Amino acid sequence: MSLQQQLHGQVLTPDGWVHGQIRFDQTSGRIDAIASETGDARDTAGSEYYILPGFVDLHVHGAGGKDTMEAGDAVQVIAREHARHGTTSLLATTMTAPMADIEVALRAIQPVIAQRPSGTARVLGVHLEGPYINPGKLGAQPDFAGLGSLQQVQHLHAIAPIRLITVAPEMPGHLDLVRELAATGMQVQIGHTLGTYEEGVAALENGAKGFTHLYNAMSRLDHRAPGMVGAALAHAQFSEIIPDLLHVHPGAIRAAMRAIPHLYCVTDSTAASGMPDGQYMLGRQVVHKCLGGVRLEDGTLAGSTLTMDQALRNLVSIGLSLEEASKRVSTYAADYLGLTERGRLSAGAFADLVVLDRQLNLIAVYVEGEKIDLANA
């Protein structure tokens, strides 16, 4: 039985804004049509609202007091908390850890990927952030970095689908690994790296497509030694960035947007997201939430408490149009994974959408046509 839903407002489509209605089928979870309204059909109340594509977050460690590495029901709790903030699809992101811990985490993630629990964001797969990183640039990752192999990654992929993997290409054998992984269709990106500009360019030439949390945990840009940041700014088409205005200065965000055509936003969120100040876990590390940030004991930034609705507002606050900001929190991330039916509002696409008021506060969220309970999800 088909259950039709109809919303009115300013609808952001791939061709621009449409004042009108968006109709979708709650049974199929797909958009049926977007139609403009004029004259007597104009819905004046609806004109107070913006209807945007649901947010797509490719770097999510936790929320609601839960961390992806905990296993159990952690990922379901995380996906429910992020849905309350407009994220309609995400990648569950692991931490560098002993291989046995990663396997346990992936086994717990797999059922949530296979069948989306009601009230949650769609978990598209796994972002394996390590352990194939440089031990000299761990950031907030535990000290379990190691060298990777295609066989080992394929073993993990058989447990739960890995859609994205972070690799430090300067480590022994890792340039070959980048090439081998890219040949399988896996999206490889550069991160937690001390690599040079030249090593970054070589990784891109061998199949890497993006960068993990640009600027953070990578060799910096200097005019005589451009580093990995320089490689990204000079050559990348895609890259993550964390727009909490704490990890990266607004000026550096804007510079990256001018250089990287499809720069997209991630939260790099932790268990502390949506929770009060206090002590939480990030993989095997204890982290502390205070004054809007999350840090290790030594003060190192350790992920964030950012949600994607706040990311959108932050982008607008630094001067982006709402249309441009929407692409950075939805469309470009979907494009990066080749998801043509998410991150945009058009007939036939999934009914993943958010409704916001004029102050960009969330009014409603729909995941594949299902309305999310924002208060008690």
Rank of each mutant, 00 (worst) to 15 (best):
3 L>F: 13
7 L>G: 04
14 P>V: 07
19 H>N: 15
21 Q>K: 15
22 I>D: 02
28 S>D: 04
33 A>H: 14
37 E>S: 12
43 D>G: 02
44 T>G: 07
45 A>Y: 01
47 S>Q: 13
55 F>T: 02
55 F>N: 10
57 D>Y: 15
61 H>G: 04
63 A>I: 04
67 D>N: 13
75 V>G: 11
76 Q>I: 04
95 M>D: 05
108 A>G: 09
109 I>P: 10
119 G>Y: 01
122 R>L: 06
125 G>A: 10
133 I>M: 01
134 N>P: 03
134 N>C: 08
137 K>G: 09
138 L>A: 04
146 G>A: 12
151 Q>K: 07
155 H>L: 06
169 P>Y: 11
172 P>T: 12
175 L>E: 06
177 L>E: 03
178 V>Y: 01
183 A>T: 06
184 T>Y: 08
185 G>T: 09
192 H>F: 02
193 T>F: 06
194 L>S: 10
197 Y>I: 10
197 Y>L: 10
199 E>V: 05
200 G>Q: 02
202 A>C: 05
202 A>N: 10
202 A>K: 07
203 A>Y: 01
207 G>T: 03
209 K>N: 04
216 N>D: 04
217 A>H: 03
220 R>L: 15
224 R>K: 11
228 M>P: 11
243 P>C: 14
245 L>E: 00
252 A>R: 10
255 A>Q: 12
274 G>H: 08
275 M>N: 10
283 G>W: 03
284 R>G: 13
287 V>R: 03
291 L>C: 13
298 D>P: 00
300 T>I: 09
305 T>N: 13
306 L>I: 04
312 L>D: 06
327 K>Q: 13
334 A>F: 03
338 G>Y: 08
348 G>S: 07
353 L>Q: 02
353 L>M: 05
357 D>W: 11
360 L>V: 08
366 Y>W: 06
368 E>A: 11
368 E>T: 14
373 D>Y: 01
376 N>A: 13
